[in-house]
Amino acid sequence: MNIGKSVVIKGELNGSEDLTIEGHVEGTIQLRDHVLTIGPNGRIKAQVFAKAVIVLGEVTGNVTASDKVDIRDNGSVDGDIVSPRVAIAEGAHFRGSVDMQRKGAPAAKGDAKAEAKAEAKTAGTAPAAAAAAQPAAAGQRA
C-alpha cells in the first residue's frame, strides 16, 4: 500500500501489510509484522514500530524494528533506533542512539583478554609509535 505525496496523516497508523509512505505522517505508526518504507518524499514525525523500516526520506522520532532498520543514501533519521540489525548508507544522516539489543557479550570479553595478551607481545606499529608509546603526561607537562 502507498500513501502518496499529497497525503497528510496525524494520529495513529496501524496496518497488517507492507506500507510505503511518500506523504507526511505525525503520530504513531505500527506495522508490527510488516515492512515500512519511507520514500524519498516521505516526512515522518512519529514513533515507528515495524518488522523492518527502510528510510529514504526523513524520520523524526524513535524507530523500533524487530528485524532491521535500513537508512539509505540521503535518508535521514533524528531519533533513537532499537533493532537487531541496522544499516546506514554513506550519504545518510543520523542523529540519535542505536541499540542493537545484544545483551551480554561473553565472547567479546574473551576477545578482550586475547587482545590484551596479543598487545603485550606485539611490537609498535611504527618506529615513532614505539618511541612515543608513553603517556603524554610523562615529562611533557609544564
Binding site: V86, A87, A89, S97, V98, D99, M100, R102, G104, A105
Partner: peptide
C-alpha cells in the same frame, strides 16, 4: 552493555562493528 558516544559523522560499518560485534548502545 557498554554505552558509546561517537562524535564523528555516522558510519554504517562502525555502527555495525560497535553495535553488533561489541554489543554497544551507540549515541551518534
Amino acid at each position: 552493555s557498554p554505552v558509546l558516544l561517537d562524535l564523528g559523522p555516522v558510519v554504517g560499518s562502525n555502527v555495525s562493528f560497535f553495535g553488533e560485534q561489541l554489543g554497544c548502545k551507540i549515541f551518534v
